[in-house]
Simulated assay, not measured.
Amino acid sequence: MIVPATAQLAFDGSGIDGSLFTSVTGLARDTRWLNAPLELWTNLGLGVFAVLMLAGWWAARRRGMEAMTLALGAPVAVVAAFAVAEVVKKIVAEARPCRSMPHAYLVDACPGPSDYAFPSGHATVAAATVAALFLLDRRLCAIAAVFAVVEGFTRVYLGAHYPHDVLGSALVALPVAFLTSLALRRYATPLIEALGRGALRPLLIAGPGAAPQPTR
């Protein structure tokens, strides 16, 4: 069989924490009744982070323009973190576990050889949402953190990523999303204030007498 050139050049990350990876996938083998639910969750679960950001926007309508800037900036921060992670993924070019450890128990189908493992895109979105919500609402941030841990676990459980792929996602996404949110709060708030005086006011302010409240 001819191995694609991209697979030959890809970095083999199994030497980093391959044993931990097989321990988690061994758990997946022993809990096959959970395979299908977690495979469904790992993708649909990303919708939870969208719902949390939507909840942040809804609450920000009563908390002033700085909070609204953070709420509207949350998806921007997540996209920024995902973009940086994609660049890192191309630079590192780590082969997926299904290619480096094909005999491990794998629930997820093996993607193409150019779909690299480090960092995990799913875990990047999860971690970036946590960071983006940190300045906006600590309660929503805490909820997002719980779901982010679950999301990261499922990526390893299903055999799609090594544990270090998930950890690397957090190391990339958290600072990028947090700094993006800080920058948007500083530089984009005047724009949001201007929009709040126009036709978009009902989407940005809950009522004419809404008073700004401190970020929690």
Rank of each mutant, 00 (worst) to 15 (best):
A93L: 10
H122G: 14
L40N: 10
L46R: 08
T154A: 14
N43Q: 13
V48Y: 05
D30R: 05
L174A: 12
A93W: 09
T69E: 08
L27I: 15
P190H: 11
V79M: 11
L44F: 10
A132K: 02
W41G: 02
E151Y: 01
T31C: 14
R62A: 12
A28Y: 05
L46W: 07
S14C: 04
L46I: 10
T124A: 07
A206G: 02
T25M: 03
R29A: 15
D12R: 02
A81E: 09
D165A: 00
F178A: 10
V130P: 12
C98V: 01
P102V: 10
Q8M: 14
A144G: 06
F118L: 04
S120P: 12
S114H: 10
G159D: 12
R63H: 14
V149Q: 03
P97T: 00
G209V: 08
V107C: 13
S181V: 04
A123M: 06
A74L: 12
G13R: 02
W58C: 02
R61E: 06
L27F: 15
Y187C: 13
H161L: 00
Y157I: 01
A85S: 15
I16P: 00
V84A: 01
M68P: 03
L52H: 09
P175K: 12
R96E: 00
A123N: 11
A7S: 04
P119M: 06
L174T: 08
A71I: 12
S120C: 13
V51M: 08
L174N: 10
I2T: 09
F11N: 10
S114I: 06
F134V: 01
R96W: 01
A144M: 05
G56M: 13
G13P: 11
A10R: 14
W57D: 08
L167R: 04
T180F: 02
A7I: 04
S114C: 04
G196S: 05
A5D: 05
V51H: 07
C98K: 01
M68R: 09
R155A: 06
H164L: 00
A10V: 12
C141E: 15
V76N: 07
C110I: 02
F11C: 07
G112N: 05
T22W: 00
V92N: 07
I16D: 00
R155I: 04
A127F: 15
D108C: 05
F49H: 11
A109G: 11
E94N: 00
G45R: 07
V150T: 03
V78E: 03
R155Q: 12
A74F: 11
C110A: 01
G112M: 07
M68E: 11
P163L: 11
W57I: 13
M53H: 09
A104M: 04
A145E: 01
V92I: 14
A199W: 09
A83Y: 01
L200G: 05
A199E: 05
S114M: 07
L54A: 15
G47K: 11
A10S: 15
E66I: 08
G45F: 10
T31I: 11
A142S: 04
S114G: 09
I2G: 03
M53S: 08
T69A: 05
A104S: 09
A177Y: 08
G168H: 08
V146F: 09
L171G: 14
A104E: 03
V76D: 04
R138N: 10
G45H: 07
F147W: 15
L179P: 04
A142T: 02
H122P: 13
P208A: 15
I192E: 04
G196V: 03
L44N: 06
G13D: 06
A81K: 06
L133H: 11
A132R: 04
A95C: 01
V79D: 05
